[in-house]
Design a binder for these strands. Structure first.
Lengths: 169, 169
DNA sequence: CCATTTAGTTAGCTTTGCTAACGAATAGGA
DNA sequence: TCCTATTCGTTAGCAAAGCTAACTAAATGG
């Protein structure tokens, strides 16, 4: 990038870091996916359930938007969660077209257990790091979460009615 | 976690950070996937091509291991890359069972362009960060890449013949 | 009151992951 | 030397997750 030997510019470092974060994200998720079997819930389902649990009852469209997925995809995910007894689908009293998706107590319970199991491997690896490295990753997670939400200038209000940032898993 | 109000333990912070990194990785990749169409190459193909380009000619098994994927999955990915003229498959002169996968010049070119495009969005966001935040993420990417390779105790030898750590994108 | 828009679903396709089962080639022991 | 492991890659077949296109039902609005 730019002159070899010259100290890299800010933009060069950004591009390089973007590539490496991209790679890291791919491999991190591939590793964590191995733990899915234990909970019986795949990553997309677990992620959607997480939004439902923490984001309160919400519509399918809002859920799809929060998960950055098209409505038909979310329809299928919700159907699977409903079939598993983890969420319910009720008519929205204020809008006959919309539905309200709500987590059951079983869903809340399973989320906790499943997510814990899923991240346990990573947590164990992180716990083995020296404290300052862990702090670096803590801050990195914050920064990465912030990247997605700062697309619009200004303080940006509620961002779709979902509590946001709550969503983990 | 642990006592509310008490300062969190190292393990608590590790668990918390694991959850947030997990979430960040999911959403980061979902955002970047949107850029796939431009290069015509999906994330798994781009990632595999990257290993081939930077990891030199290597066997299918080594490639599958590097990508943390089963051999049949890699067979299909390589077939797609070969059909697109991005890699070649030649017989290994030293082992009649194995094959050597090598990137074509078209593959090298496309990797560069495709990966740049794919990470451009992220790179732009990163470039907008203050230098010390960018440094934090640089270090985080290093740490995350290191997590996957330190599973076995001891210095761990060649790990499958791949240069390792070379793999970017 | 009818036209337009919006919310969700259904249908159908592609890609990616897996396991199981197989053929071919290598390695090692009797 | 020959016969059995083992290993490498492929094929076949399945499930999950993503998409677009097309549809129904409900709400909006002129």
């Amino acid at each position: 990038m730019s002159e070899p030997g010259a100290s890299p510019t800010h933009d060069d470092r950004a591009a390089n870091t973007a590539t490496r974060l991209h790679s890291a994200a791919i491999h991190l998720l591939r590793r964590l996916r191995r733990e899915d079997d234990a909970s019986g819930l795949s990553a997309p389902r677990l992620s959607a359930l997480s939004v439902i649990v923490f984001g309160g009852p919400l519509s399918l469209g809002a859920l799809a938007a929060a998960e950055q997925v098209r409505p038909p995809t979310m329809t299928r995910l919700v159907a699977a969660l409903e079939a598993a007894g983890l969420v319910t689908r009720e008519a929205d009293p204020g809008d006959g077209r919309a539905i309200l998706i709500r987590a059951t107590s079983a869903g809340q319970r399973l989320l906790q257990e499943g997510r814990d199991r899923r991240t346990a491997v990573l947590a164990r690896q992180l716990a083995a790091l020296p404290p300052d490295d862990l702090a670096t990753l803590e801050r990195a997670a914050e920064l990465l979460a912030g990247l997605g939400t700062t697309t619009s200038p200004g303080p940006s209000p509620t961002r779709g009615g979902v509590t946001c940032q709550q969503r983990s898993s």
